[in-house]
Amino acid sequence: MKLEFCAENCTKLAWAIKRGIHRVELCDNLAVGGTTPSIGVIRQAQAICESNQVELAVMIRPRGGDFCYSQDELSIMRFDIEQAIDQGIKQIVLGCLTPDFRIDLSACNFLLAGLEEIDITFHMAFDRIDPNYKFQSLDQLIELGVKRVLMHGINKDWSVLDNAVEINRYISYLAGRMEVMVGGGITPGNVAYIAQAVETSIFHGTKIVE
């Protein structure tokens, strides 16, 4: 089982690492679902994670709200990616959608150009994709070189357990071609039950350790 701790800046990093996490998703502004952290925060988090042999992934998202970005916003995101890589970051988290809730291939291609050596996670924007295009979207993410997708399930008011049937359909369809990580309300008290219901071993959350 692999546990990813969703961290708002560096405040609880050392605390979470001592409790056995394997990877950190570093964000700012978790109240809006997470945005890009500052370079100073990235640098400090990188030092903490490297010294403890914990993986670090950095969120690239210029604002809260939807995942439909203007060209100016995409330029900001691309610059932030390059700055993060300059700090030694090898894992990036992002997601771009069109107004009709499909993957924005143009935006993703712009952001990911030349990043073949970088580990990419497509975040929970996946849950907002039109259900009629979910399987097609998984194929598109593979073509883009995305390594894993984070999801909770289309019904945000349900628990991961309630969404397990849906999530398992995607896992079965992927057949190992891309990792699926699940998140949303996962705690030390329920992760073992979720692991029995959802056919993945990668779990994500802000309260995944205590």
Rank of each mutant, 00 (worst) to 15 (best):
G20K: 05
V182L: 07
I89F: 07
Q44I: 08
K12E: 15
A192I: 08
D127G: 10
I208K: 01
H22T: 04
E166K: 04
I208L: 08
K147P: 00
R63A: 03
A47M: 13
D127Q: 10
N52L: 05
Y69Q: 04
D139T: 12
R23K: 12
N29H: 08
G34E: 03
I42K: 06
Q71T: 10
C96E: 11
V24R: 09
M124V: 08
F122E: 00
A175D: 15
D127M: 10
I81E: 01
T35P: 08
A45T: 10
I21H: 01
A164R: 14
R63K: 11
D100E: 12
L174S: 07
C6Q: 03
N132A: 15
L94T: 13
V149L: 12
C27W: 06
M181V: 15
R148S: 09
L26R: 00
G183E: 11
K18F: 09
A84D: 08
A84V: 04
I85T: 09
A164D: 05
A113L: 06
S70N: 13
K90S: 05
E73F: 13
V146K: 09
T121L: 07
F126E: 06
S159Q: 04
R148I: 03
N163M: 06
V209G: 02
E210I: 10
G176W: 08
C27V: 12
I194T: 04
M59A: 01
R177T: 07
S172L: 14
A45G: 12
F203A: 03
S75R: 14
K2R: 14
C49P: 01
M178F: 02
A16T: 02
L3H: 11
D66A: 01
I154E: 12
P62E: 06
K147C: 09
L115G: 00
V32E: 11
G176I: 04
A16S: 08
F135C: 01
S159F: 05
L105C: 11
S75K: 14
L115V: 00
L74A: 13
P99W: 12
S51I: 07
R169K: 15
S38L: 12
D139H: 14
A195N: 00
S38C: 11
E55P: 00
D139R: 14
K156D: 08
I89V: 15
E166F: 08
I48F: 10
M151I: 13
N132E: 13
I17L: 02
A107D: 05
S201A: 05
L144V: 10
M1C: 03
D162Q: 14
N190I: 07
N168A: 03
R102K: 15
G145P: 09
P99D: 04
D162V: 02
I48Q: 05
I81K: 01
V93F: 08
I154D: 09
